[in-house]
């Protein structure tokens, strides 16, 4: 067991290092600004006094290293600073939106993951036949389409032509769960379509990669049936790449929500990020980036650890007979 532990510990250390590096990048990239944040906020015409005052207010007159430490400490306490645009607490701003984004991503994942893995396995069982070819072409299209294309196609069909579902996904606080579900359908479907395509292709590739191994030929020569070969002989060896695929696509979903939220005007974190970038509301951008990146890093870490756990070679290191 110690091998698994030590590898997991290494991955964990790397994950934490990545998080640290990301916080450094997020914080210090602001230093790249011509002039500094205060000048950027107040613009060209500001008086030096005003700039100095804002600089003091923002704490910019302290050394960068001190400010970074303070920023990280605040971050760990859940204090994300104040929005430059509205003056509101970033934490409040983010908290509302984060819940919406998580609900959307989970809804999409619940549709996409089982469907993608299942279709991927079916594709290998029937590889080379009609089902596989249709799945292959459809999924190629699925990964080639930009999300906004899929989104507008769905809107054109379900909202404009059929009028079944709303084209925008405005959610307030007072709706019932059913209303929320109706509103969520199109955004979740858009995300799910892309993810199903990715998961299908990667699952298929993982199993087909294993199917070229000599032990699969051996299984064929033992007279094992094709379905049993895929399920009992190939799948256990493809498990670790498939787990990886699923989690990496979860990570992708978290980022993919940005575009879908914009299309459907869904009040999530992605929408907030895009708005803040165009307003150059740096504290909000920093907070959103940290949240997205941390989720992404943690999911990647989870994928790494799970794929270690599903490898029998690592579970039982070689012992001499």
């Amino acid at each position: 067991m110690h091998v698994v532990l030590s590898i997991s510990a290494k991955r964990l250390a790397l994950g934490l290092a990545t998080l640290l590096a990301i916080s450094l990048i997020v914080f210090f990239s602001v230093e790249l600004l011509p002039g500094d944040l205060a000048e950027a906020v107040l613009g060209q015409g500001a008086t030096p006094e005003a700039v100095a005052a804002l600089r003091h207010e923002l704490g910019l007159d302290r050394p960068a290293a001190v400010r970074y430490m303070a920023w990280v400490l605040d971050l760990l306490h859940g204090d994300l600073g104040r929005s430059l645009a509205t003056g509101r607490s970033v934490a409040e701003l983010v908290a509302d939106r984060l819940g919406n984004t998580v609900v959307l991503a989970l809804a999409a994942a619940a549709i996409a993951m089982p469907l993608g893995v299942g279709l991927g396995i079916l594709s290998t069982v029937y590889r080379g036949r009609a089902f596989d070819r249709v799945a292959s072409t459809a999924s190629l299209a699925g990964i080639s389409f930009p999300e906004f294309f899929t989104a507008y196609m769905l809107v054109a069909i379900f909202s404009v032509k059929l009028g079944w579902l709303p084209a925008v996904a405005l959610v307030g606080t007072g709706e019932s769960w059913l209303q929320r579900l109706v509103v969520l359908t199109l955004p979740a479907l858009t995300l799910a379509l892309a993810v199903v395509a990715y998961v299908l292709r990667m699952t298929r590739a993982a199993i087909v990669g294993v199917m070229a191994a000599p032990y699969i030929e051996m299984a064929q020569l033992k007279g094992i049936s094709p379905v049993s070969i895929v399920i009992r002989h190939a799948l256990p060896n493809a498990l670790s790449p498939i787990i990886n695929v699923v989690i990496l696509n979860l990570a992708y979903l978290v980022v993919g929500v940005v575009v879908v939220e914009v299309v459907f005007v869904y009040p999530g974190l992605g929408q907030l990020l895009v708005d803040s970038v165009s307003k150059r509301d740096i504290p909000v951008v920093q907070a959103c980036c940290i949240i997205f990146a941390a989720t992404y890093v943690l999911l990647n870490l989870l994928a790494d650890v799970l794929s270690v756990l599903s490898n029998p070679r690592l579970k039982r290191p070689r012992q001499q007979v």
């Binding site: 032990y215 051996m218 033992k222 007279g223 256990p236």
Partner: peptide, 24 residues
């Protein structure tokens, strides 16, 4: 044909290390 394989006609491959399923 598949029913005969393994039961009536069996095969021993060159590389046993590659021909055994590592996960089982």
């Amino acid at each position: 044909r598949r029913r005969l394989r393994g039961l009536k006609i069996a095969y021993v491959a060159q590389s046993a290390a590659a021909s055994f399923n590592p996960a089982r």
